[in-house]
Design a protein around this nucleic acid. Structure first.
Lengths: 154, 154
DNA sequence: TACATTGTGGGGAGAAGTGGGGAATAGTGG
DNA sequence: CCACTATTCCCCACTTCTCCCCACAATGTA
């Protein structure tokens, strides 16, 4: 199964809707088609999971014991900022205002395919992050991450 | 089966009624539809269980040994503040005044989907708890939940 | 050029949220 | 047993929002 890749910029209309990139839609598996979970990401961006991938996360959460303090804290603060959505008939995703504000998204959103999920950025935030990453340090990171992994695989 | 997620703010009217969020209603399973158990939570908030999930809690309670002091104390104090409710024809839940007072809920209630149950908070109490959760600790939580999974996927 | 697909915008029907009146029911005191 | 009060809950009315649908521009393709 192919993962999401590529970068796509689309405008957000007055109702908070964004077109879902056609190229990414073609990658969706039939069982997940049209259904997504959107939530706060680790950087100031949003994560968009197709429902089949999100199910794995839910299964993991379901295993957490809610009668311990840590369990409750994890579940509450993780699920709080997550919400389910479907594409409308024009293949658009509605972005709820509280997530848009949090991610600094206003008139434009950038979709970045990132394997099993999709990231949604505001152009400004993305630029900031980019500014802090030179090509040289990217090379280093790449070697570090990919290097380790291939070592593990051996 | 999907769990509850997301955060929804609704106003409480003079009669102590709150609209039950439509998105959460869609997640309810048919066999539980409209029937809930509401009780004091372990944090200063209320727990709202759909009836099918509440049954599991009751089973867990049934396993407690009533011939120990601890067992009796747990059972008594857990169940004494629990009550069953149904949604009215406008999909509202009536909040009994003693639970509202205890949770500090006045004009506004915040629903937080938390997997198999729903938490109901007063904005003030929630803010207090939030003050103790930074973005950094959210990142930690995230890695805790999602991190393991991506490792497994490799 | 003709045609299909994708991205963008807006009007409008229906659903969701909010508030209040009033009938039925239950609890309280004579 | 009968008032009287309080509570519950159904119904109606109004506002807001969601989402479906239509329209059209831009782009790609035969």
């Amino acid at each position: 199964m192919p993962g999401f890749k590529g970068e796509y910029e689309h405008s957000v209309d007055a109702k908070g809707r964004v077109a879902f990139p056609a190229k990414l839609r073609k990658i969706l598996r039939p069982e997940a088609q049209e259904n997504f979970t959107l939530l706060r990401g680790l950087e100031p961006c949003l994560y968009l999971y197709p429902s089949d991938e999100w199910e794995k996360v839910e299964q993991k959460l379901a295993g957490i014991n809610s009668f311990t303090r840590e369990g409750r804290t994890v579940k509450r603060n993780f699920l709080r900022f997550a919400e389910d959505f479907s594409l409308d008939k024009q293949n658009r995703i509605p972005l709820p205002s509280h997530l848009m504000e949090w991610a600094g998204i206003d008139k434009t959103a950038i979709f970045i395919g990132s394997g099993e999920r999709i990231e949604v950025w505001s152009p400004e935030k993305l630029e900031e992050v980019d500014a802090n990453l030179s090509f040289e340090s990217y090379q280093e990171l790449f070697e570090q991450v990919m290097g380790d992994q291939t070592n593990k695989a051996e």
